[in-house]
Design a protein around this nucleic acid. Structure first.
Lengths: 339, 339
DNA sequence: TCCGCATCTGGGAGCGCTCCCAGAATCCCG
DNA sequence: CGGGATTCTGGGAGCGCTCCCAGATGCGGA
């Protein structure tokens, strides 16, 4: 019998133990940051790991241990299409950055329409330790379902459905409020809004901010048209608003991408921006700065969004206590030419 | 001694075997689609799997088997920032779609500046069976390095460095060629270009297409300015071009996002689009349709890009032979108002 | 002194699979 | 009707770790 050839390259934990002059139990303890290891052993192990270029086998740890060493990022179909592209990429970058250096794998799951049940089975089947759920539609039952099975989750975006699971969201309300205050400070008085869908918290919160801002100054809160997060729908909504009030002097649009469509309509009808109508968007996405005229908008840091979700989930998995249930990330107005 | 409580929920392969009335070896064969299993056994196993809701343990298969059941998607730092967001999200969606239903996990790796060596060690350390490398900068040594270690890879975007590894790319050359032909068919004769960086194949190929298109009709190929893929740089480049030839009547811009900047400059200088200057972009990104005027551009299907890369890699992993080394995806002109 | 407790260490079972091997059943051709 | 190839099957070793247990050591208080 010859030596069993190793299938995979790279050293094993046993080899690290030998080089460090300790047992593999001790190496394992060091890797997992457990207490009850002498400083001497710990240093020796770290040196051996560096020397050999050892990196623990993920499959083996997962199989042997009681955790999966992986978390899922679940993105709903709508999420990945509509609001999504720049948002999504930014969030992903944040998640990834926060995971760097930890031995936690990231599993991506995008809602295929077909596999609702299969997805839940997979998530609750012990393949992951927790999940980040980017859930844009408020009525989405997935967060609740997962939470009820006991799987730790963090939802991105305030869930509309009542429920007590952790979430992270941008401070949409105050962002919108600030936008409206800015418009008012510019002397605008007939301020309309193109709101997001009524079934998304992100849309509703921005709408509430707009309402409050107007109410503060006793202005009318009638000029509302709901839309979805596409330029075409934004254009349509703008036309409706102009039909309702041809003399409006400002419009707060709940997403830059809709603002693009709205501005096209305004310009086509001969309105000057911001001369006749001031426009404020939301997101500060890449298109805002290059719009004509450049778009004043409310900035949210999507990368921070991803980082925060991840941090919150990992903290819970690590058993930390007294974690905040929800976290609101600040938003801020970015002034450009359109308002 | 009590029964060892199972750590993870869900049935094991052994249980499936019992229910199906076969051995676990046979169940394993069915799961992995091996031959030498009778139709009778195969059916029985499938029934048992469905009945129990069995799903194989990824960690165990990986540990026991000779493959990792995972592939990596490696994205360079530049890739994820610059050209990237919409491109990146689309590719990712394509990759994910192609992976659906197979028992292959997707690992995301974004080039942290810090960990070049660590990343290579990880990739070649048996944690993945292959890698998709989205490499935008031509001089990037990563594809070559990985390829030399024997790790199967597919590169997204033609690598500039000579080398014989598989890649998938959009047909940038013919897309640009078609764009120029269109401009010529419109009667334009003084056609400039804002090209991408000279160290990216994507930029060079679009430039070559522009050159060929002009050469076909004996037109001058002098009005070239290189730029990078940002609106600001596009604006700057446009100013340079106008300095070189204030009477140019068309410009082919190697990316929509640069075209936005270029159009701002043109309009600020009082040029009519397309009356005085026709503009064609590239990518058909989300901003093209909402630009003012809507941008004529060359469409590439980024989702298909991701699917194709994945398909090519999985085919190689499955041992298929006579696979094409490189695959070019078609591009097509989308006519809008700007040209 | 001797016990208890906290700290540190190594040995070894076993996580759920795949893959090798040996053997049984079936087939085809002379 | 024999014997080799082909098809099918089960048993069991072992992938590289974690986690439990038992034991060794050090320290302070009864």
């Amino acid at each position: 019998m010859t030596e069993g050839r190793s299938r995979r390259p790279g050293p094993r934990i046993e080899e690290v133990a030998r080089v460090a002059g300790v047992s593999k139990s001790t190496v394992s303890r060091v890797i997992n940051g457990e207490k009850y290891v002498s400083e001497r052993s710990r240093q020796a192990v770290h040196r051996a790991i560096a020397l050999l270029g050892y990196s623990p086998n993920h499959a083996a740890r997962t199989l042997a241990g009681s955790k999966a060493n992986a978390i899922a990022l679940v993105i709903s179909e709508q999420g990945s299409r509509v609001l999504a592209d720049p948002f999504f990429a930014g969030v992903l970058r944040g998640v990834h950055a926060e995971l760097a250096g930890r031995h936690v794998q990231l599993l991506l799951m995008m809602n295929q329409p077909s596999d609702g049940a299969g997805q839940i089975a997979y998530l609750t089947g012990g393949h992951v330790d927790g999940a980040l759920v980017v859930s844009l539609h408020g009525e989405d039952p997935l967060p609740r379902t997962l939470h009820e099975t006991g799987l730790p989750i963090v939802v991105g975006g305030r869930p509309l459905a009542a429920g007590s699971f952790p979430f992270v969201d941008s401070d949409n309300f105050n962002g919108a409020l600030e936008a409206v205050r800015h418009l008012i400070s510019l002397g605008r008085e007939k301020i309309a809004t193109i709101a997001g869908p009524a079934d998304m918290a992100v849309g509703m919160d921005r709408l509430s901010g707009w309402r409050c801002g107007l109410a503060e100054h006793g202005l009318a809160v009638k000029l509302v048209v709901h839309s979805d997060f596409t330029p075409e729908a934004g254009a349509l909504a703008m036309e409706k608003l102009l039909g309702m009030a041809p003399d409006l002097d400002a419009v707060f649009v709940a997403a830059d991408i809709m603002a693009l469509g709205a501005m096209m309509v305004l310009q086509a009808r001969g309105y000057q921006i911001p001369g006749d109508v001031a426009v404020v968007g939301f997101d500060d996405s890449v298109v805002a700065a290059t719009a004509v005229p450049p778009l004043t908008t409310v900035r949210q840091d999507v990368e921070q969004f991803g980082r925060t979700m991840t941090w919150r989930l990992l903290a819970e998995l690590a058993g930390e206590e007294k974690l905040p249930l929800s976290i609101l990330l600040p938003t801020s107005l970015v002034r450009r030419a359109s308002a």
